[in-house]
């Protein structure tokens, strides 16, 4: 797998902030290694569904909502960027 560019990580930070209406969060607040859900950024299960929809709309990536694999992809920003890099069709 090729190293994920910082540009893509920054793009994903903006996607997360805009899609999830994180009014007080800036891209600098999102650490690539910190958990996105519950701890770290503190997103919830509705955010997970919303983010899944945004990935589908923006990059054409379809995920299974309940799978262990999806759980891994959503663990942190770095895993999310790796998923987009590997599976994007647009």
């Amino acid at each position: 797998m090729s190293p994920v560019s910082n540009d893509l990580e920054l793009e994903l930070k903006h996607l997360i902030i805009d899609t999830l209406e994180l009014e007080d969060v800036t891209p600098d607040d999102i650490d690539r290694d910190e958990p996105l859900f519950v701890e770290g950024l503190g997103l919830d299960s509705i955010d997970a569904l919303e983010l899944g929809l945004a990935l589908q709309k923006t990059y054409g990536i379809k995920l299974d909502a309940d799978s262990e694999e999806s759980r891994h992809h959503f663990a942190d920003l770095k895993s999310l960027a790796a998923l987009v890099e590997a599976r994007r069709v647009k």
């Binding site: 209406e21 509705i46 955010d47 569904l49 919303e50 929809l53």
Partner: peptide, 9 residues
């Protein structure tokens, strides 16, 4: 169009 889960909630 797909529905926004957050807006639906």
């Amino acid at each position: 169009e797909p529905l926004s889960p957050a807006r639906f909630g």
